[in-house]
Design a protein around this nucleic acid. Structure first.
Length: 641
RNA sequence: GCCCCCGUAGCUCAAUUGGAUAGAGCAACGGACUUCUAAUCCGUAGGUUCCAGGUUCGAGUCCUGGCGGGGGUACCA
C-alpha cells in the first residue's frame, strides 16, 4: 500500500471533471511541501494550458468544488478537498488511510515497499572493487555501502541482482609494489604475520616506494633545473614525510622506479613464473583482509572476479574495439602525443578526449579490461542494467567505455558464445553510478585512515555514549558487545549514505561518529523504543479487523501514518536514481515521526483500550517498515539499546 | 587551455527534478524524565540560496556570462 491508489482515485475524479486523461493528471499530482495543506496536491497551471482559457486559480476553485462532491462524504476515502489559489489540495480520510496502510504492511511484512516490477530484469552491480596493492581505507567504504544499498533496493523490487566485486588485482601499480619489495626485502609481509599486521606492512611498503618514486622524479628534475626552488621544496617535503622507522632514501643510479614497474608488470602479463607466484601470494594476503571487512559490514557478492580473470578476453576486447571503427594507431597523426604505436580511439568530437586501448608496448589498460568485463557480463547475465559504483574521478573513463561499447554495438560485433548476435541495448545498459570522495586523504601520501580503525573507534565511542545514556536497559556481555558493534557501524554507514552521492564528504571523525540527531543510532533508537513497547504489551495481540483505524487521527499519529504510506514511493525513487540517500532521508522523516509519536502518546496506558489497540497496530507496522528500510541501507535493527 | 561536478543558516546537509511561507541536524539559548528507553521531545534565534543578466504564470532548481572550490585531461587504476 502506498499513496498510489489514492492518487489514482484523485486522478480519476479530476479526469471525469475536466475530460483529460487520468494518467496525465496522475503524473501532475504531487505531495504538498507543507503537510497542513493536505496529502495530495494538483497544481492547476499544468492542466490550465491544455484546457485553454481559464486562469489556474479559477480552475482550481471549480475542480475543488466538483471533486469534493465526488470524493468526500460518508463511506468515501477523502475528508477534504480545498482550493488554495491555483492548487487543489486533497486530504485523505484518516480512517481510510490508516486501514489501507496497516493492511498493506500486515500483508506485505518485510516485503512491504517492494514489488515484482523488476522480475525478469537482471541488474549487475559492480561495487566495492578494492585495489589489491592498497589497503581497504575509508575511501572504499563509499563504493561498498552505496553499491550494497543499491543492490538491496533493486532486489526488494524483484530484480535479479548480481553483485560483482571487480578486484583491482592487475596493472602497473602492482609492478610498483613488486619493485618496492625488491628494494626493501626486509619489509615484506610474510605468511606468518597476522592478517592485520600483514596488510599494514604492505601498505607501509606501498607508501615508501611511492615516496621513493616521487623523490627520484624530483632529483631528476633538479638535475635539469639546478637550484629550482619549488623542486627543492618538494624534495624536503617528501623527505620529511618519510616514516621515522623507514630506511633512508638512497638515490639509485639504475632504472627509474616507474620504468622498472612497467617492465615488471609486462613480465607478469606475459606469464613469467616468478612474477606470477609473487603476485598470487600478495593477492591472497589482501583477500583475507577484505573478507574480514565484508563480513563485518554484512556484504556479500554473487561474483568475485579480479581484473586478472579477464586476461583471456583482452585480445577479443581489442578486436571488438577495432571492429567499431573508432580506433587507430597513435603516431599516424603528426599532432599525436606520446609514444607511437599505441591503439587509441579519438573521441574528441564527443568531448571525450582520447581513449587509450593498448599501450605501445602491447600491455593492456583499465579501459581494455573493462570492455572485456562488459562483454563477459553481457554474455553471462544479459543485464537490463550494468551498474558501476565507482568514484567521480572516473567519470571520463566510463563515458569513454560507454562510447566505445556503443560503437561496438552499432556494428554488431559482440557475439554470444553460440555465435549469434547479442540482443541490442547492452551498451546503453551501462550506467556509471558515481560518487564524491572523502576529502582530506590520499593513499599514496600515507594519510589514509584504515577502515578497521575507523570502525573500531566508532564502537569505542558507542560504548562511551551507552554509558552516558540516562534511561533504558543496561545491556551486558554479548548482547552489549553486539549492540555496540551495530551502533558504531550504523553511525558510519548512515553518515556515508545520508547525503546525495555526488557530493564530497569532508572527513571528520566527530561527524562520522555522531550518535545524536540525524544519524544511524537515531533510527536504531526509534526502533528500540518501538520494540520495547511491543515487548511490554501484555494483552493479546489485536487483529487488524478488531481495531478502529479512525482513532489514529491526532496530528503526530497521522504524520506517522503518512510516512508509512510513503515508503513504497521512496523505494522506487531510490531505485530509479540509484540514490540510497532517498531512503536515508525517508528514514529520518519516519524516525522523527516515531520519536515524536512515542514521546507524546501512550500505547499500553492509552486513554481508552480501543485507542491502545489501534496504536499497538500502528507501532507494530511502523517497526516492520523501519526494520525493512534500515535493512536496505545495511543498518542493523536492535530490540534493545 | 579544454571538459565534468559542486556552491543553500556559523558548520554539515534537505527541498517531491520548474511549484505554495526554502526545511532538518550540529553548535547557541530556554524548557520537558516518580508515567511504554531523554542516544529523545518542544520552543527561541539564525537566509540577498556566490554574483549579474535571461527564459515564464512561477527559478535554489533551466539558459548565458562571471567568481570561488574540487576533479579529469595519452600509455596508473
Amino acid at each position: 500500500m502506498s499513496l498510489a491508489p489514492f492518487r489514482d482515485e484523485v486522478a480519476a475524479a479530476v479526469a471525469e471533471i475536466t475530460g483529460l486523461d487520468a494518467a496525465v493528471i496522475a503524473g501532475h499530482l504531487e505531495r504538498p511541501k507543507n503537510p497542513d495543506h493536505g496529502d495530495i496536491a494538483l497544481p492547476c497551471f499544468r492542466i490550465a494550458k491544455t484546457l485553454e482559457a481559464k486562469n489556474p486559480a479559477k480552475l482550481g476553485g471549480e475542480i475543488a468544488t466538483k471533486a469534493g462532491d465526488a470524493l468526500c462524504g460518508d463511506g468515501k476515502r477523502f475528508e477534504a478537498v480545498k482550493a488554495a489559489g491555483p492548487f487543489v489540495n486533497f486530504k485523505i480520510a484518516t480512517g481510510a488511510l490508516a486501514r489501507a496502510t496497516l493492511e498493506g504492511i500486515d500483508a506485505g511484512g518485510e516485503a512491504y515497499g517492494g514489488g515484482d516490477e523488476g522480475a525478469g530484469k537482471t541488474v549487475v552491480i559492480d561495487y566495492s572493487s578494492p585495489n589489491i596493492a592498497k589497503p581497504f581505507g575509508v575511501g572504499h567504504l563509499r563504493s561498498t555501502v552505496i553499491g550494497a544499498a543499491v543492490a538491496r533496493v533493486h532486489r526488494h523490487l524483484g530484480h535479479e541482482v548480481v553483485g560483482v566485486n571487480h578486484l583491482g588485482d592487475w596493472g602497473t601499480q602492482f609492478g610498483t609494489l613488486a619493485i618496492g619489495i625488491e628494494r626493501y626485502p626486509d619489509l615484506r609481509p610474510s605468511e606468518d604475520d597476522p592478517d592485520d599486521e600483514a596488510i599494514r606492512k604492505l601498505y607501509g611498503l606501498y607508501v615508501l616506494i611511492n615516496n621513493d618514486k616521487r623523490l627520484e622524479d624530483s632529483y631528476r628534475k633538479l638535475d635539469e633545473n639546478p637550484g629550482h626552488e619549488a623542486i627543492q621544496r618538494d624534495i624536503e617535503c617528501d623527505l620529511a614525510s618519510r616514516p621515522d622507522d623507514a630506511p633512508p632514501f638512497e638515490r639509485s643510479s639504475g632504472t627509474p622506479i616507474d620504468v622498472a614497474a612497467r617492465e615488471w608488470f609486462r613480465r607478469l602479463e606475459a606469464g613469467d613464473a616468478a612474477a606470477r607466484a609473487e603476485w598470487q601470494e600478495l593477492r591472497q594476503l589482501s583477500l583475507r583482509e577484505f573478507d574480514r571487512i565484508y563480513q563485518r559490514l554484512g556484504v556479500e557478492f554473487e561474483s568475485t572476479r579480479g581484473e586478472s580473470d579477464y586476461n583471456d578476453l583482452l585480445s577479443e576486447a581489442v578486436s571488438l574495439a577495432e571492429a567499431s571503427g573508432l580506433t587507430r594507431l597513435s603516431g599516424s597523426d603528426p599532432k599525436d602525443e606520446g609514444e607511437a604505436g599505441a591503439l587509441i580511439a579519438d573521441l574528441r568530437d564527443d568531448k571525450l578526449a582520447i581513449a587509450l586501448l593498448r599501450k605501445a608496448d602491447g600491455a593492456s589498460l583499465y579501459l581494455t579490461r573493462d570492455i572485456a568485463g562488459v562483454a563477459y557480463r553481457t554474455r553471462t547475465y544479459a543485464p537490463w542494467r550494468n551498474l558501476y559504483v565507482v568514484g567521480k574521478p572516473q567519470e571520463l573513463h566510463f563515458k569513454q567505455l560507454k562510447r566505445v561499447c556503443q560503437g561496438i554495438e552499432a556494428v554488431g560485433a559482440l557475439k554470444s558464445e553460440s555465435g549469434d548476435s547479442v540482443p541490442g541495448g547492452w551498451s546503453d545498459a551501462i550506467v556509471h553510478v558515481s560518487f564524491g570522495h572523502y576529502s582530506g586523504m590520499s593513499t599514496r601520501r600515507g594519510t589514509l585512515v584504515f577502515l578497521e580503525d575507523l570502525l573500531d573507534e566508532a564502537v569505542t565511542r558507542a560504548r562511551a555514549a551507552s554509558e552516558e545514556s540516562k534511561k533504558g536497559p543496561r545491556l551486558e556481555g554479548a548482547e552489549l558487545d553486539a549492540a555496540l558493534e551495530a551502533i558504531g557501524l550504523g553511525a558510519v554507514i548512515f553518515n556515508d549514505l545520508r547525503q546525495s552521492r555526488v557530493k564530497d564528504i569532508p572527513f571528520d571523525w566527530d561527524r562520522m561518529l555522531s550518535f545524536d540527531g540525524d544519524s544511524g543510532p537515531y533510527l536504531q533508537f526509534g526502533y528500540a523504543r518501538l520494540s520495547g513497547i511491543l515487548a511490554k504489551w501484555s494483552e493479546a495481540e489485536p487483529k487488524l479487523g478488531d481495531i478502529d483505524p479512525s482513532l489514529l487521527a491526532e496530528p503526530r499519529t497521522r504524520t506517522l501514518l503518512v510516512a508509512l504510506a510513503r515508503f513504497p514511493d521512496a523505494v522506487r525513487e531510490a531505485a530509479r536514481s540509484y540514490e540510497p540517500s532517498i531512503i536515508s532521508q525517508y528514514l529520518l522523516d519516519l524516525s522523527a515521526a516515531v520519536h515524536a509519536f512515542v514521546h507524546e502518546h501512550q500505547v499500553i496506558r492509552a486513554e481508552t483500550p480501543e485507542l491502545g489497540r489501534a496504536r499497538y497496530a500502528l507501532v507494530a507496522a511502523t517497526r516492520t517498515v523501519l526494520r525493512t528500510g534500515m535493512g536496505l541501507l545495511g543498518i542493523e535493527a536492535l530490540d534493545r539499546m
